[in-house]
């Protein structure tokens, strides 16, 4: 493997890590948000539409 190919692999690794971390966190936020919103709406519904 020449130096150029090695450099390219590290660049690809860096961008891949960046996207995995950012998209992974995004998915976590969306899932957590959706679950919290469902729980909250359910509690408000069970409370006759009144908020705490």
């Amino acid at each position: 493997m020449n130096v150029f190919e090695m450099d390219r692999n590290f660049v690809i690794a860096a961008y891949s890590v960046m996207w995995v971390v950012v998209l992974g966190y995004l998915v976590r936020l969306i899932r957590k948000g959706s679950r919290a919103r469902t729980d909250y709406d359910g509690m408000v519904g069970a409370n006759g539409g009144e908020k705490p």
Partner: peptide, 26 residues
């Protein structure tokens, strides 16, 4: 822009979780 989106979204979740805690305490 991603940072602002993440913080706003996380803050929205934190407020929801806090409201759920209030329901549970009540």
């Amino acid at each position: 822009l991603v940072l602002i989106y993440f913080i706003r979204k996380r803050y929205e979740i934190a407020r929801l979780e806090r409201a759920i805690e209030d329901f549970a305490q009540a």
